[in-house]
Amino acid sequence: MSFQRFALTLATVAACAGAQAQTGGYPNRAVRIVVPYATGGGSDILARQLGASLQQMWKQPVVVENKAGAAGNIGSREVVRSPADGYTLLLQNSTMVTNLGVNGKLPYDAEKDLTPILLLGVTPIGLAAHPSFNISDVKSLVAAAAQPGSSLSYGSCGIGTPQHFAMELLKLKAGVQALHIGYKGCAPAVADVLGGQIPLAIVSANLLTPHAQSGRLKVVGVSSAQRYEAMPQVPTFEEQGLKPFDFSIWYALMGPANLPPAVVDKVAADVRKVMADPGAKSNLSNAGVEPLVRDAAALAQLIREDSARYIELARTARIRAE
């Protein structure tokens, strides 16, 4: 071996050793991803995709644990109280900041008690109408609400959910009145609008796709800045004159406060690889999650901005927990 080659080999070994020292060989044992919601939702599906892929990549168990309750606060608090070593991670969504808007505070400080790692993706919110109510877009919604004796109502996935907030924002911007009916989840709201018991339901847009395709529901619009890939024929609320209106459910990976920067970088880099994989992207798209990967700084800024936005909207629309 030449001296130059030997020197290069030593440099490579030293660099690898240095990186390993920074992360402590992370991960060298099982990693938990806590999902503070029940199984089957977007956060759970996303966590299980990440867990399966990272387990193959890391050659260590990656266990997804659902710790539902208190609108996501139980699982989040468990992560907040965990050691800051990277072996307990949190897959949260924007319900965290809607909770802040509704309640005025959380049992933890989202900015101080958690370390942002990566923004992962979004799910647009869609407003659907039963065909018998002759509402197909924002213009016809405004006209229906303006009819003498109109008593429009709408169902959402629950009081204080992102879907509830999105509709209250729409009401403010469009100048319409509609009574809110909070369901215990999105599925019951979809079922009642399909059955004609309520004229409108605002839910995660992916839940509306099959019913829009079959003609059983009319989708009035979607909340994202760009059209939803699964329903490209449906215009956004912004396209229909309600600007600004970029109001999607977001998903993010976080850890306890003071997570070592080297661990954050390691997790973020490997999760980026998962999110770029065509198979993973297809699986998530089928579940209604559109990958939108942004770094820790962008995630921290999003949490700050959305916290302020939801607090203000809750005050203006008088959204309060029951």
Rank of each mutant, 00 (worst) to 15 (best):
G24D: 07
I117H: 08
E312K: 15
E238I: 02
M275Q: 00
L54N: 00
G155C: 02
S285W: 08
C186H: 07
H130E: 14
P278L: 01
S82C: 06
L170G: 04
K273V: 11
S76L: 06
A166D: 12
A257C: 08
E312H: 13
S223G: 03
S82V: 10
I135A: 09
P199N: 13
E312I: 07
A298W: 12
S53A: 11
P83T: 12
I33K: 10
G86Y: 08
M254D: 04
L292G: 08
V31P: 07
K171L: 06
V79F: 07
P210H: 11
S53I: 00
K243T: 11
M254N: 06
Y37D: 11
S43L: 10
S224R: 09
V34Y: 09
G69N: 03
V62D: 01
N66R: 13
H180K: 08
P260S: 08
Q233L: 01
K139N: 02
A38P: 09
M96G: 08
W250N: 07
F6S: 15
A143L: 03
P291L: 02
V31A: 11
P131F: 12
W250Y: 13
E229D: 10
Q55E: 15
H180P: 07
A189N: 13
D192N: 15
R318E: 13
L217F: 03
L200I: 06
G121A: 06
